[in-house]
Amino acid sequence: MAQVFHKSANTIAKASIALAVILAGLSFYVVTQLARSSYLTGTYLERQQPVQFSHKHHVGDDGIDCRYCHTTVETTASAGMPSTQTCMNCHSQIWADSPYLEIVRASYRENKPIEWERVHDLPEYVYFNHSIHVNKGIGCSSCHGDVANMPAVYQVNTLQMEWCLSCHRNPEEFVRPKEEIYNTAWVNNLTPEEKKKLKEEYKIRPAEMLTSCSTCHR
C-alpha cells in the first residue's frame, strides 16, 4: 500500500505549527496596534472648526487663561464651552468686521449657538469629571497636550481605557503643583519625594480605589 503522505509532510507539519504561532502572534500585534492607531483613535488629526479659532493665538500669544472660556472646569463634570457672548467680549471691537468672524456675529445676532466640532469624545459609559482632575493636581496638558501651541486642536492621547489606567494606577507620576495646572507647557521634573508629597497633599486615594470599575463606569 502506497503511503498517503510523502516523507516531507513531517517537516511541513512541524513548520506549520511554528508558522501558526508566528501568524497568531503577528495578527495579535497588528490588531492591537491598529486599535491604538491614529486611524482608529483619531489622535493627531486636526479638526476643522466652523470658525478658524486658534488656541495658539488666544492662549499662547495673548495669554488668556483656559478658564476665561472653559469657565466651569473647576466646578462641574464638563469643562464648559464658551457662549458666543464670550467671543463678543473682545470681538465686539477687535476684528469686529472680519469676514472670518461672521459666523460668530451671526450666532450672537440670531441667538443660535455655534456648532463646534467635538475633538475629545469619550464613550458615554465613561463618567469623566473635569473638576475632580484639576482640583487634584492633574493639569490640562496631561490629557490635552500643549493646547497653547495648537492652531487647530487635536487629540494627543488615545483616550482608551489603558491610557486612563496608566495614570489611575500611579497618579503620583502625573500630579503637579496647584499653580501649574493651567500651564500647558509644564515639564515634569519633580523628584520622587515631591511627587509623593503632592499626592498626599491632594489626598489622592490609593490605586485600588482609583482603578475600581465604578470610579469611571456607573
Binding site: S78, P113, E115, E124
Partner: peptide
Amino acid sequence: DMQDQPKYKPYKKSEFFADGR
C-alpha cells in the same frame, strides 16, 4: 449605542427642541 447613548449631556444637540439645544 453604548458609545452614544440616547441621553442628553451638556452641549449635546437635540432633535426634539426647536432650537436644537
